[in-house]
Amino acid sequence: MNEQMFNEVVEILVQHVDTINKDSIKLDSDLKELGVDSLNNIKIVLSIESKFDVEFSEEDAANIQTVNDLIKLIISKQGALA
């Protein structure tokens, strides 16, 4: 697993989710349980897109449940570009 990417994703989550406890974020953490909701969700998507130079569709965004899903999606999008 890509530790650097995990840490970068954690940074973005911490930046946008006020209630989040950084140490509790694990790969299999459920984003909803971490406090990601329909409002901060879009800001996270935008930050991820600019940080990793990818583009998510609404469907992509809707299918992300865990931190791992998010990382896998970033990797697959980057792969699609390469």
Binding site: I42, K43, L46, S57, E58, A61
Partner: peptide, 21 residues
């Protein structure tokens, strides 16, 4: 749907506001 989502992201990016949905 894809267009709407792209436009939605552009709005948040440009204005910093989230549309009231």
């Amino acid at each position: 749907r894809d267009w709407t989502y792209r436009a939605y992201k552009a709005y948040v990016k440009e204005t910093g506001k989230i549309p009231q949905m």
